[in-house]
Design a protein around this nucleic acid. Sequence first.
DNA 1: TAAAATGAACGAAACGCTTCGAACTGGTGA
DNA 2: TCACCAGTTCGAAGCGTTTCGTTCATTTTA
Lengths: 332, 332
Amino acid sequence: MPATIVDIKEKTGLSLATISKYLNGGNVLPENKVKIEAAIKELHYEVNELARGLVTNKTNTVGILVFSIESPFTGMILHHVGEALRKKGYGMLIVDSCDDEQIEARNVKYLISKKVDGIIVLPVASRGDFLSPAQNAKIPIVLLDRSLSDIQYDCVRIDNRKSTYNAMKELINRNHKKIAVIASEREYTGRERFNGFMEAMRDAGLEVPADYQIRGTHSIATGYNGMKKLMALKDRPTGVFMSNYEITLGAMLSMNEAGFRCPDDISLLGFDDQLFFHLLQPQVYMVEQPMKALGERAVELLIGRMNGIIDEDPIEIALGTRLQEGNSIKTL
Amino acid sequence: MPATIVDIKEKTGLSLATISKYLNGGNVLPENKVKIEAAIKELHYEVNELARGLVTNKTNTVGILVFSIESPFTGMILHHVGEALRKKGYGMLIVDSCDDEQIEARNVKYLISKKVDGIIVLPVASRGDFLSPAQNAKIPIVLLDRSLSDIQYDCVRIDNRKSTYNAMKELINRNHKKIAVIASEREYTGRERFNGFMEAMRDAGLEVPADYQIRGTHSIATGYNGMKKLMALKDRPTGVFMSNYEITLGAMLSMNEAGFRCPDDISLLGFDDQLFFHLLQPQVYMVEQPMKALGERAVELLIGRMNGIIDEDPIEIALGTRLQEGNSIKTL
DNA sequence: TAAAATGAACGAAACGCTTCGAACTGGTGA
DNA sequence: TCACCAGTTCGAAGCGTTTCGTTCATTTTA
C-alpha cells in the first residue's frame, strides 16, 4: 500500500538504481532530481528501512537495554544517550528489563533479531552470560553505569568506590562514629558503594556492627524497611549512608513517618542527586553523577567500536562525581 | 556473518519452507524438529526480523513518540505501556521529541520508515499536522495523555478539566478567595487544567485578576519564576493551583528559597503525584493520574485498531483521577 | 487392494531496497 | 571526423525471510 521506489520509478521513468542513488545522496542530473522530488512528495514516499537494512546490513539503530525504565535515573541518562546518538544519525531501540533477569536475557535476543548495530546496556544481572548471544553475533556492546563481575566489556560509569569513600568524609570529619549503611547488593553499583563505605570506615578506624549493615535491592522498600530497622535499634547510628536514589527516598519516607528528624536524630548522606531533593528540608548531602558525560562517553565509545576505529581490549571509563552539599549532617 | 535460515537448511538438509514453518510454530515431524533445534543452537541462529518484516509487512513493533523522555511522568507511563505491549507480543520503539516540534515531526517519519505497526503519541505540538505522514501511511495512531486541537485521533487521557474543577473545591471550601494559578499553556493538558481552574473560580463567584494567572511552559522554570512573581505581589494570593509536576516542583523550590511556608503563607494544590512528594512537609494536595490504566487502555485501543477489530470513528477515553490528600491547604 | 484423504515437505516467487559492472551520453582534443 | 573520457544511467543480482501451489509419503476407507 505505501509507495515504494518502484512507484517512483514508474512516475519518473528513471531506473531503480538512479533513484536509489538520489536517496543516498549521490549525483543525479538536476532535471531528474526535480522529477524524483516531485514524485516523492506526491506519493508520500518514505524509505523502507527494513529493506534497506536487509541489504546494507546496517540499521542505524542502537539497542538500549535498561534495567528499569521507571527510574528517574534511567530517564535522565536516556535523554543524554538519545541526544548523543541523534547527533550521530542513530536512533535508539529501548527495551525495558523491568528489573528481571529473565526479561533481560530475552531482550538481548530481541535486539539481535532487530539487527541493531550496537547495544548499550544498563544491566540487571551482575554476570555477563546473558550478553553472549550478542557477542556471538559480533554486535558491539558498551555497559553503562554498571559493570559486570565475570566478563569484561567496554564500560562507562562513575568511580563508585572512590566517590563513596570521599563523600563519607563528610560524616567522619564531623565526628560521627556510629554510621550505618543501607545498600543494594544485587547490582554492581550497590556493591561498589558498599565497599567504598566499608573502606572509609576501616581507614577511619571505625567499626560497623552487623546490624548497621543493611543490604537489599535497588528499591524504595529496601530504604524504607532498612531505616525502620535502624531506628528500632537500641544503639542507634548517628549517621546513615544510602547507596542510591530509591533507597534514599525510602529511608526518608520512613523517617518522616516515624517522626525522626534529620539531622537532629540521624544525619544522612545519599547517592544520585535529583532536583527535587533540593526541596527537602534539610537538604540532603548527595553524590551527584555527571549524567550528560556518562551518556556521551558511552555513545562515543560504542560508535568507535561500530566503525572499527576503536579496536583494543575492553576499556573501562570511570568518571568522577560531585558532592551536592546540604545540611543533613550534624557536627557531633 | 550471522547464521541464516539457509545455514540451517544446509545443516539439516530440509527446505527453507519447512524451517520457516517450524520457526513460525507450524507442524513438523519430531525428527526434523530435533534436527532444526540442534542446528539453531549450534549456529546461534536468531531470526532476522528485517527480512521477516519485509515479507510479512508487520514488525510487531509499536512506535512511541514522547514529548520528553526525561520527565518522571514519561518514565512511569512508558513502564506501563511497555508492559502491556510485551504481554501482547509487541516491542516498542521509543523516540524522544525533546520538547521540540521539529524533532517530533522528523520522528514521525523515522517511525514510518521503520515500519512500526502502530504509534502511541504523547505529543509536543498541539496541532496534528505533524502526524499526517503516518495517517497517509495508514498507521494506526493513539494519543496518550494529550489531545490535539484540530484533528481528532483516538485518545486516552484523564479528564483534566473535571479533575481540576473538583480538586479546586479543596481550596474553595476552605474559604480561599484569592487563588492564583501557574499553568503551562503550550500543551493540551495545561490548557485544560487552566480552564478547569477558571470554571471552578467562576462557579464559586471568585475573581481571578490578570496577575494571578501565570502561563508558561511545562517546566520547572515556569513554576519557579511564576511563584516568585506571585510572592512579590502586593496583594498576594492565599492559595495557588499548579498544573503539573514540573511546575509544582519549581514553585516549591522558589517558596523554600524565599522562606515562604506552606500552608501558613500560601496554600498549595498540585497535579501529578509522584512518590517523593510524600516526603515533603507539609504533604501537598495532588491530583493523581491512573498511570497503569492510561497505559493499558492506550495499548488496548491501539491493538484493536491494528487488528481492525475496532473500526469506528476516533474514540476519546477520559479516565477519572484521585486526589491525594495532604496538609498543604489552610482553612481560612 | 486400490482409491481417497491426510499431513509434511518442497520450489519458486516475492517483499523493497542497494550495488556492481556495463552501457550510454555529450563534450573534448587530436 | 573520430576516439576518448568523465559523468550519468541502467539491468540484474542479491539481502533473509514467508507463502502459495504442488508433490510426496503415509494412513484410512471402501
